[in-house]
């Protein structure tokens, strides 16, 4: 038989629920499509890391890859429409943006860049770790040097009077927080726990700025070569994993928030009224993005923002 071998490049810790869900998905696909396709995992960022993955897959340097959605925003700007900072009040609300017409728009945008979205995985909400204090109000952002990677997040932070800082590479961020080069960083509770953010920035303020997703993407040409039944199989089995990771994201967030607190960090939640203020300020930034990115972007905004 002509079994097609698909190289899948991944990264991240193997014991993470996202990695475990992915391993199950690979097994299920390989079993169900035995003789037709075989997915081989190259783990641990050996082939490509999150920064370069989307363009490696788009070029076809690897058949499939694990893509960090926020890292791909520059290449596929439409994805910002389902990742608007402070737009979604809960992970379930954010998950709705990945359905129906909204999903069709972003899938089409990705296909233009020769990427096929195959599986969506969820991670827990992005919060704020600070080495100064917990954030009680909008005023607490004033002058705060916040490590940032996202342009839209930076814009909102500037509007809040903070000083978003993109100058420090990821490997230096721990030291930067510890030595006071920076004051704060945005990270999820689970991500922060594993990167030890809470050791150097002991004030964790929950504010659910956004919910990052992780995709398994395939090169569009490779995808089009697959038999229809294999394509459907991959997507259907993928939906199961999406649901599993959505539940795991909630469970892990609760678990590791407790761990962080147990290890001596101060965990609070920003008052609802203050978060509403930030949301209001953010609206201008979303609107500007929609205006700059055409009517598809405006449609995404209309679909996803109440």
């Amino acid at each position: 038989a002509n079994e097609m071998v698909l190289k899948l490049a991944t990264w991240g810790p193997p014991k993470h629920y996202v990695a475990e869900a992915r391993a199950d998905w690979i097994n299920e696909v390989n079993t169900a499509a035995a003789g037709k396709v075989k997915i081989v995992d190259y783990p641990g960022g050996q082939l490509y890391g999150p920064k370069e993955m989307h363009s490696a897959v788009a070029k076809g340097s690897v058949d499939m890859g694990l893509v960090l959605q926020p890292a791909m925003l520059a290449m596929v700007p439409m994805l910002q429409g389902v990742y608007l900072p402070f737009a979604f009040d809960s992970i379930d609300e954010a998950a709705k943006a990945y359905t129906g017409e909204s999903l069709e728009i972003i899938e089409k945008a990705m296909e233009k860049k020769r990427l096929k979205l195959v599986v969506i995985s969820w991670t827990d909400g992005v919060q704020m770790f600070s080495n100064k204090k917990n954030i009680q109000s909008v005023d607490d952002f004033k002058g705060l040097r916040i490590l940032s990677t996202s342009p839209m997040f930076s814009e909102i932070m500037v509007k809040l009077g903070a000083a978003p800082d993109t100058s420090i590479p990821q490997t230096e961020q721990y030291m930067a927080l510890q030595r006071g080069v920076s004051d704060a960083m945005a990270n999820s509770a689970v991500g922060g726990y594993f990167q030890k953010s809470h050791e150097v920035a002991k004030y964790l303020t929950k504010m659910d700025m956004s919910y990052a997703t992780i995709f398994i993407c395939m090169n569009l040409n490779t995808w089009n070569k697959l038999p229809k039944d294999v394509q459907d199989l991959m997507v259907d089995l993928g939906k199961k994993q999406t649901a599993i990771t959505l539940a795991a994201a909630k469970g892990w967030e609760a678990k590791f928030t407790a761990e962080i607190e147990k290890e001596g960090a101060s965990v609070t939640r920003i008052p609802d009224a203050e978060r509403a203020k930030i949301k209001n300020i953010s609206k201008e930034v979303w609107a500007k993005w929609a205006k700059d990115n055409g009517k598809e972007a405006q449609r995404l905004l209309d679909l996803n923002i109440k």
């Binding site: 920064k51 363009s55 788009a58 890292a71 520059a74 290449m75 233009k112 860049k113 930076s154 993109t166």
Partner: peptide
């Protein structure tokens, strides 16, 4: 080839510069 590819799919950098790659 890569220059052409980056130009065709309008790939830009992830940073604030959003430099055309």
């Amino acid at each position: 080839e890569m220059v052409k590819f980056a130009y065709d799919i309008e790939d830009v950098s992830t940073g604030l510069l959003a430099a055309p790659l």
